[in-house]
Design a protein around this nucleic acid. Sequence first.
DNA 1: TAAAAATAATGGAATAACTCCAGAATTTGA
DNA 2: TCAAATTCTGGAGTTATTCCATTATTTTTA
Lengths: 147, 147
Amino acid sequence: MSDPAELLRTRGIQVTAQRLAVLRVVASQPHTTADAVAEAVRAEIGAISLQSVYDALAVLVSEGLIRRIQPARSPARFENRVGDNHHHLICRVCGRVVDVDCAVGSAPCLTAADSSGYEIDEAEVIYWGRCADCAPLSPPNRKNNDG
Amino acid sequence: MSDPAELLRTRGIQVTAQRLAVLRVVASQPHTTADAVAEAVRAEIGAISLQSVYDALAVLVSEGLIRRIQPARSPARFENRVGDNHHHLICRVCGRVVDVDCAVGSAPCLTAADSSGYEIDEAEVIYWGRCADCAPLSPPNRKNNDG
DNA sequence: TAAAAATAATGGAATAACTCCAGAATTTGA
DNA sequence: TCAAATTCTGGAGTTATTCCATTATTTTTA
């Protein structure tokens, strides 16, 4: 049952052209920003306010249909790969984001060395570096100081 | 040579009361925000503009004396534990941040399953959940959908 | 099928967290 | 000690996002 409209309906969310378009855009352009979604949706269905894009994204995120990632010094990004076990690799220079499978394997890596009494529900991993295009063009700007 | 003034001087950074105070505050209150630093510094040395706090923090970060972490939906936070191998555990409810050692061990976990040609220099890991105080008071609001 | 209730979409204003800029003050160093 | 460099300040500007009041649309009920 991966029909988008059906996905919405079964969750009691009204099916609207805007929401379907937003969902479609996020699916076709993973790691896209709210702004970019607005533009793409406009190209598809004519008009949508930026606020409505934020609304639609918020609804989809809260229902777990899409995921929001918010890397430092970048607007929030959205992707429709949810419920699987993957992380992100981000280029410090051009900001490009790519998916990587979890190094630990397919089991969620939810076990910290010492959880300090926290009940952990997500491990968010971002690998920072420079992508194949940017690496030769600029010097490394950070020492390896984190593991 | 952990004398703060010396640390600044050897890097060619002018030693000022403001910078020393900012460094001291970040050291004594890890995971603090720029706002909180400003308040604490004012309590210590009288007055400082928020902008100067940002300036001082930026200088200290760029010299690697402190580290900036920027969790989603939170202002940037600063800590003076740098160059070691640790990650963060953040409570979704109250925002409390605590340090955790890297689950992988003391070697920096810079190896992604597939680095896609990226030259990785940092692996940023944030464990999200609810702290011991908040867990009993509110229901979990997220499925385990990430590893 | 029309009125009432619920839900969505809109524009505009507001907000948080920074960043940028030009000038004043202070510090350094020849 | 005087010029050059650096630092500090207030104010304005920016970006990404949220809030709010109103209007439009959709769904439910009578």
